[in-house]
Design a protein around this nucleic acid. Structure first.
Lengths: 103, 103
DNA sequence: CCTTGACACTTAGGCAACCTAGGTATAGCC
DNA sequence: GGCTATACCTAGGTTGCCTAAGTGTCAAGG
């Protein structure tokens, strides 16, 4: 999985991960890794800025949890859920378009 | 189809387009447009540099044709054909990975 | 006790890829 | 002659993911 392939799809992956349950940043990284069978081993420098970006644009909300360690727990907003739906639709259109050419 | 979604997949699209027949640059753009049902309307500033890049890396070969206009006709090299196979395999792995998370 | 490694977060700067925008030039049509 | 489509080129900008470096906590082993 190269970095360039991922471009433009990371936000959808994060939204999808957080649609099951709210998670803190580090756990998002772990979840992406496990749900992809180890294929998506994204560095922190990729995921954390993405979380910040998604929060700034109102698709995620976060709050600090202080159970021993300091953790910032992210959850989908209503707009985030809507955006996830749109992202999935865009993904389907994207793959059918590429496959029409690639086949 | 946003620009970022495309990133990392353009080379495969061009290789696939040229696997059917050799084409000059402008015709590659047209072919991508028609084979994608109009979804892939890539500007020249995207496709021409990509063709140059692919030629530099030995996946394409080109020669000038002088039937009235000057046209640079591109064709797949043996390495280009091999790379197309690898690209298709990578594409399959990419989509299954993303879909495992997105589903 | 203290070092090591996993956990947890942050961010500045780099790089690669695609696009914008500008340019050149030929051919065909009205 | 002017307009449009064809055909090519490329400098520079934007964007997004990654590298790398930093801070700090906690648990385990020597």
């Amino acid at each position: 999985m190269t970095a360039d392939e991922l471009k433009g799809h990371l936000d959808a992956l994060i939204l999808a991960t957080l649609s099951h349950q709210s998670l803190h940043g580090y756990a998002v990284i772990e979840a992406l890794k496990s749900r992809s069978g180890g294929k998506l081993a994204l560095p922190e420098g990729t995921v954390y800025p993405a979380l910040h970006r998604l929060e700034r644009s109102g698709l995620l909300a976060s709050e600090w949890a202080h159970d021993g360690r300091r953790r910032r727990v992210y959850s989908l907003t209503t707009r985030g859920q809507r955006e996830l739906g749109l992202s999935r639709a865009r993904w389907r259109e994207f793959t059918t378009t590429i496959e029409a050419v690639l086949a």
